[in-house]
């Protein structure tokens, strides 16, 4: 079976699952929007005086998008453990489909969902009063980055799922990585960070992804920032995909 077609069929299957369990996705959408509104409400009015950010709604927009993507991207790992427990994973593994397609289908579905959620967040944020400096083209780039980030990030849960087959472990492993989102210039620019936090943020790939996205919203086209963000996405993706491949190999041939 052609691996690409198989991946797509399995992506569709995973998406159909979301449609049938809308509560999950509603929670995935609610959490980032909630934090967005609360953060903007708490800090927005002092952001200019405190750290020179004029459009704090725009400043927080990519945070919400990334947070949403990260939340959505926990889906693949968890769903995979359920497939493993139900035996359906083995049923799929017994077809002539490349086994990577089984895993990639799940991850791609998360990426697609993250883009849909991201688009929704952008629209709501703009209606709420956020600017978007680079316009429609910028939105497309931002959503492209969201796609890449969600794909890469879902690999963490997937690798753990394949290693352990345990939903709890997939969830726990995921929670451990969640702080990465906050060891970045999430609430304020790195320049105002305590030195230790700044040091951590500067080696955190999420920082570069976030800053790259943020320039699209609040500043305009910044090729260097976008390049750094793109490289960070690729780097995270390379690591998680490698882990996923190794975990897949150990899972399918015991």
């Amino acid at each position: 079976m052609n691996g690409l077609v198989a991946t797509w069929l399995l992506t569709l299957r995973a998406l159909r699952e979301s449609v049938r369990q809308p509560a999950n996705e509603a929670a995935n959408a609610f959490i980032p929007l909630f934090f967005y509104v609360v953060t903007v409400g708490a800090v927005g009015s002092v952001a200019r005086e405190a750290f020179g950010v004029a459009d704090y709604k725009g400043f927080q927009l990519p945070v919400a998008v990334l947070q949403g993507a990260a939340g959505v991207a926990s889906g693949a790992g968890l769903a995979l453990t359920l497939d493993i427990q139900s035996g359906y994973f083995e049923k799929l593994a017994l077809t002539s489909t490349p086994r990577l397609a089984i895993v990639l289908g799940r991850m791609l579905a998360d990426a697609v969902k993250a883009v849909i959620l991201g688009a929704g967040i952008v629209v709501l944020a703009v209606l709420y009063g956020s600017g978007f400096a680079t316009g429609a083209a910028g939105v497309v780039v931002l959503l492209g980055a969201t796609f890449g980030f969600a794909l890469a990030y879902s690999g963490i849960g997937v690798a753990i799922a394949l290693r352990t087959g345990s939903p709890q472990a997939a969830q726990a492993g995921f929670i451990i990585f969640f702080p990465l989102l906050f060891l970045a210039p999430t609430f304020a620019p790195v320049e105002v960070f305590a030195p230790w936090l700044e040091a951590v943020a500067r080696v955190n790939p999420v920082t570069y992804i976030l800053v790259g996205m943020r320039t699209l919203v609040t500043e305009g086209w910044d090729a260097a920032a976008l390049a750094r963000g793109g490289i960070a996405v690729l780097a995270v993706g390379a690591v998680t995909l490698t882990l996923t491949l190794l975990a897949l190999r150990s899972r399918v041939r015991q």
Partner: peptide
């Protein structure tokens, strides 16, 4: 192959 334990996806 039909394994001893059925392996189905209940949502489909």
């Amino acid at each position: 192959v039909a394994l001893q334990e059925v392996g189905l996806d209940e949502l489909q």
